[in-house]
Design a protein around this nucleic acid. Sequence first.
DNA 1: TGATATAAGTGTTATTATTACACTTAAGTA
DNA 2: TACTTAAGTGTAATAATAACACTTATATCA
Lengths: 232, 232
Amino acid sequence: MAVKQQYYSEHPKFHVALDCIIFGFDKGELKLLIHKRRFEPAKGLWSLFGGFLAEGESLENAANRILRELTGLEKIYMEELQTYGNMDRDPAGRVISVAYSALIPAHKYSEEYSRKYGATWVSLKDLPGLIMDHDSMVEKGLRRLKRRASSQPIGFELLPKEFTIPQLQALYEAIYQSKLDKRNFRKKILSMDVLVKLDEKDKSNSRKGAFLYRFDKRKYRKLVDAGYSFTI
Amino acid sequence: MAVKQQYYSEHPKFHVALDCIIFGFDKGELKLLIHKRRFEPAKGLWSLFGGFLAEGESLENAANRILRELTGLEKIYMEELQTYGNMDRDPAGRVISVAYSALIPAHKYSEEYSRKYGATWVSLKDLPGLIMDHDSMVEKGLRRLKRRASSQPIGFELLPKEFTIPQLQALYEAIYQSKLDKRNFRKKILSMDVLVKLDEKDKSNSRKGAFLYRFDKRKYRKLVDAGYSFTI
DNA sequence: TGATATAAGTGTTATTATTACACTTAAGTA
DNA sequence: TACTTAAGTGTAATAATAACACTTATATCA
């Protein structure tokens, strides 16, 4: 700290905040986890999960702490999206905010937690307006998600360990926001050879039932290491 | 400011810095513009162009100001890459640094400026070690550049207004770091129908000379707006 | 218990995109 | 005028994508 004073003390300092964009997938829909802001300004309005960077913590740690404090979610892999630093983005003063985002299986976030923390899944189709520049954060996060989904097998980690092909297809359709041909989808996804078919069926969606599959991480790793790039 | 005090004053503030990663393309090679750092700590060591965010300026503006002050470059479109906030990234104290990057035509940066500002183009192949985490910033910037190049016609804006197809191909080869078939390259690039052939030839690279082309921005915009996505 | 409704599952063909590959041409220099 | 060098050109084989409709399994209801 003494050294810091020596070199940099003439420069101004700023509040640094973190905002967490949590996308989830549930019942064939892409959703966003939001809550009503707990502090002024804009208290009570819909907001992403945000808070301030503290002394002695890295940006990643801060984002994870804030998410945990506000939602109870732990061990979520979030990725930095963008840093927002416009002068007027926060009416209460200059705040530089680093936005992080993650896509999680919505089934991981229980009703119980939702009640306890007041965090709510809202379908992207009927998203309310969010405070400050949170809308544009979400928009940017969604753009990246779509781009990602079309080149990485992003979906596998978002479903329960065992899932059906129609479920996986619904996930991709939700991300792309368009319909896919089920024969072509099945062909493509199976040709990657990273799914293991099980003997059981899931009958929650049809009388006939759909066979359950499991994602083979070892094979997946091998493919990726060999430079294979996925495209749906 | 009064309002700011009211709500946020209990939170700590941080130094916020900007670092500029400037890639350039010249003589068939990808290069990086760097200089020897002018202030402590690490004064005199190779570094990206960095400086501190000032009161009353946005991140973008600050990045542009810093680039201008240290290199003389103006009106460069830089894009935010990532924000670095590890505790120990700067030995002189806690600094949150937002990295911006750009790819520019190296011919835009004259010898004269280079002498005046002490900024030097260095081929990526023989890059010296850079201070702090600047190496990983460059690495990340390069990864993004490669990804970009394969899906957007990024190259057009990096060459002089008039350029030849072999020059354009050399640029893509430099970014991908691999050879491309000239017949296939030409076919693909011309099939996009965004280049206008001129009557003159450029004879700087061969006796025969290669026809000059110009990038048709109007057609390009139309294509992009119609949802076309480029792939080389 | 047989009819019905519903989602799962299955192949083939046409079209398009990608890759591989070798000779000719233009023009300056010796 | 022969030589050298990079620019320029076409085709065929292969692979990837897109379009398309019927059958199957099984729970539910008459």
